[in-house]
Simulated assay, not measured.
Amino acid sequence: MTHPPSCVYVTHLVAPKYGSTPAECEDAVVVLPDHSHDDMLREPLTVGVCDGATESALAKDWARLLARSAAEQALRQPDLLAGGAAFEQFAASAVGQWEPWLAQYTQERVADGRPLKWYEHTKLAEGAFATLLAVRVDPDRGPRTDAAAPAQGWRWRAAALGDSCLFHLRDDRLLKAFPVAAAEDFGTVPDLFGSRNHDVALLAHRTRFTEGECLPGDRLFLATDALAAWYLSAPDPLAAVRELLEFSGPDDLDDFVDWLNGLRKRQQLRNDDVAVVRVDFEGR
């Protein structure tokens, strides 16, 4: 008897901190290929998740650029998230995109009659900063001799600089947390990817890499630090997962924001921007 090949469903939600607008949100998510959350995917997929550092200028713009660059380049290069020279090349490429972007931004400000102020020039000279979590998921087709066989499982690779986290769940119980494994390990000064950091060897050295295998029924959650810390500090992790599972698509964004604000009101969640990506593996 043959079984249908496994597939994945991917959705993501991004919400600003309480008191901010969506346009001010400094968390960014890019998922490729760009499909609807209710589409079955059987091909490789990549995700970039970035949390812009508020204290730096244009952090939200750098977070968006970096997340897209990570997702695009990881999709083109299957081994990028294994580290080494491929990751250094990605880092150099991402940093190389910043100055052209900034030049265009500066020109647009002038055209709009809003040229940069002297203090903005000073801040921009320091660069923009963000955390980075990049993930690639591939169907596992078994031995090379069986490359044409349908995938039953999936393999994933991840790279993380900073404290945006990946959680691998099986039966909705935590198998792996990366790169932060416990709530008390979150610090106030995470490692950051700078838009003007041309020392790509140092960036690669500070980045952590890992991989794993997912079976049908498993889930991956990717989350920026506030939501990741909430989950890791939950007294009942299984109940926390079930709360997250209430939100399964973009139509749930308003309810998701209401839920986040409830957690904030009860002082269970730090008031910060939130991004979460959910990857469900299905099949048998």
Results as ranks from 00 to 15, higher is better:
residue 13 L to F: 03
residue 125 A to Q: 10
residue 5 P to K: 10
residue 128 A to F: 11
residue 139 P to N: 01
residue 182 A to G: 06
residue 76 R to E: 15
residue 53 A to R: 08
residue 196 R to T: 09
residue 157 R to E: 07
residue 145 T to H: 08
residue 39 D to E: 15
residue 168 H to R: 01
residue 98 W to H: 03
residue 228 A to W: 04
residue 268 Q to T: 03
residue 88 E to I: 09
residue 239 A to P: 04
residue 122 T to S: 07
residue 136 R to F: 00
residue 257 V to W: 00
residue 221 F to C: 06
residue 204 A to E: 08
residue 96 G to A: 12
residue 129 F to G: 05
residue 139 P to V: 04
residue 259 W to D: 03
residue 176 K to C: 15
residue 44 P to E: 06
residue 42 R to C: 14
residue 129 F to S: 06
residue 86 A to K: 14
residue 67 A to K: 00
residue 63 A to D: 00
residue 183 A to N: 02
residue 186 F to V: 02
residue 121 H to M: 15
residue 196 R to N: 07
residue 54 T to A: 13
residue 242 R to M: 12
residue 92 A to H: 10
residue 50 C to M: 01
residue 47 V to F: 01
residue 224 T to Y: 03
residue 277 V to F: 00
residue 116 L to I: 05
residue 3 H to G: 11
residue 135 V to L: 10
residue 212 G to R: 00
residue 283 G to I: 11
residue 126 E to L: 12
residue 1 M to L: 08
residue 212 G to K: 01
residue 273 D to R: 04
residue 264 R to K: 14
residue 107 Q to V: 13
residue 17 K to M: 10
residue 159 A to I: 02
residue 115 P to A: 10
residue 29 V to H: 01
residue 122 T to H: 10
residue 31 V to G: 03
residue 14 V to G: 03
residue 12 H to W: 09
residue 140 D to A: 13
residue 20 S to N: 07
residue 210 T to D: 11
residue 251 D to A: 10
residue 217 G to I: 05
residue 220 L to F: 09
residue 6 S to D: 08
residue 234 A to Q: 04
residue 206 R to C: 07
residue 80 L to K: 00
residue 134 A to G: 05
residue 155 R to S: 02
residue 180 V to W: 01
residue 101 W to R: 07
residue 82 A to D: 14
residue 238 L to V: 09
residue 169 L to V: 09
residue 126 E to N: 11
residue 16 P to F: 04
residue 272 D to H: 07
